[in-house]
Write a protein that binds this DNA or RNA. Sequence first.
RNA 1: CGGGGAGUGGCGUAGCUGGCUAACGCACGUGCUUUGGGAGCACGAGAUCGCGGGUUCGAAUCCCGCCUCCCCGACCA
Length: 564
Amino acid sequence: MRLSQLFFTTLRDDPSDAEMPSHRLLLRAGYVRQLGAGIYSLLPLGYRVNKRVEQVIREEIDRIGGQEMEMPVVHPADVWRRSGRYESVGPELARFTDRADRDMVLAMTHEEVVAGLLADIVRSYRQLPMIVYHFQTKFRDEPRSRGGLIRVREFVMKDSYSCDRDAAGLDRSYQLHYEAYERIFKRLGLTTIAVSSDVGMMGGTGAHEFMVLNPAGEDVLVLCEACGYAANRQVAKAPKKDPPAEDPLPREEVATPGTTTIATLARHLGIGEDRTAKAAFFVTADGRLVTAIVRGDHEVNETKLVNALRATGIRPAQVEEIKAAGMEPGYGSPIGAHDTTVVVDDLVARSPNLVAGANKEGFHFRNVNVGRDFTPDLIADITNVQEGDPCPQCGGPVILRNGIEVGNIFKLGTKYTDAFGATYLGEDGEAHPIVMGSYGIGVGRNVACIVEAHHDEKGIVWPAEVAPYAAHLVAIGAAKDPRVTETADRLHQLSIDAGREILYDDRDESPGVKFTDAELLGMPTILTVSPRSLAAGGVEVTDRATGARETRPIEDVEALVRGA
RNA sequence: CGGGGAGUGGCGUAGCUGGCUAACGCACGUGCUUUGGGAGCACGAGAUCGCGGGUUCGAAUCCCGCCUCCCCGACCA
């Protein structure tokens, strides 16, 4: 490709609204342009990188037996009603009506369509196991996009679906994907950590997320450097040490004016935060007021709380809702409360004589004991793991790191095939539900993460596997010596003939501009043809990553661009 | 949705306490010079100052409403 003809431009100044390095560089180097919040165009260079990433994924999913297909972006709403997600998924599912006033959705994932196809096509156990996949645009109307390509609303995702006879088959398909993902991310130049994760809206029985460590990551990972334990904080558990045993003391009211936070309360009473019980209030999707009690030195983990409640979602409660149940925000506890579901953290249930709210402005109770002073509806682990907590596997201290999710794998089970009546006849002559798994990788997010991991102060440094072009040919001093253009043209043509075209900077620009752009664009190899290089016997070959530079004979470079 | 910030040629910005023809750097076009690290000179094109309304003799600038984008939070397979 001749740079003089390429649909792109580089920017000398950093765009003002690009904070992450990947976003800044992809904009400056002319790979992407923004159309709206979380909506991007891929310019030819960016599109080419996406295709390269897709190809790596395609090869590895093919390798485990995946069959590529394509499913629609626009679905009739009935398909989503059938699985229950039309109602259960929030506004991130984009809904609209067509000209005949039929309810439609923009697909955010494709489990429903796959399950419907399975019901239509699969009859016999002989057709299983089977993996299908596609690369398709998803639209998720996220409340807030951020970080350039890291979190967008419209994006291409590889999603594959495994279809098995039984749970053991699902385990095998899941394992195949796990291994395929490790190969994919390695080839993409990404260092990932597989963490066990929540199943969220997908439903199912088990899941892993593949995470890239990044300070801008939106997930918090709980990691143990000693034994390798890794989990998303949403589901991570840490053993909580029992507090020293004490006999329950009589409950007594104590004046605590102006202590609406645990920190001020503990200071006021001169006790540790671990001697207090903190109440947090939520409302479930089906309208139940939930009072969550954790110890003052912990915080509520909403994912765990939702799962303990078997709710589809929760939101923070309003002040009026809390008061309506007989509790006082800032001084709240379940003591004397009504019409609320009380969920108590397992540690609180074992902690004697805590300070808790008296449900009266400016007052708390000392010596509150679960069971005696109030009765929980549910006792569960509902707290976040904190830095330094003991690892659940080896007991060593865990660390917390931010991560970006670049891929995930889910054991779905039969949630969707049950809904769609997707069964097969087994060897036993009986109908059985097909057991599904689903496996996603966001292509654009991976591109952004690759740039995050592979750049320097001059620009992008693409790993060879995903570079849009293998080499960037720079012609300098063409006016001084006609052999420059001759040589460069010939190298370019050789690469075309070999079917692996290189990027050719044939522009009438100063050497500085060309070198700077070559480094910004980030091809793994920069080839420089100039009167100087020709006088030295050939073409200068520069390794973008190391900066190592050597002049090599033209025949060598010809072989190089041919792909020898 | 809550809090904060910002919309001025393609990019980055100035102007904003009401007053000349909306300024500067980069990018862009033409010509000449230049050609191994973001060249020089000259000429030139390009902006309904986010949109709508209002105040005023006069609005990029003041007032009201709206839209959009970014950041933090909420949210998130």
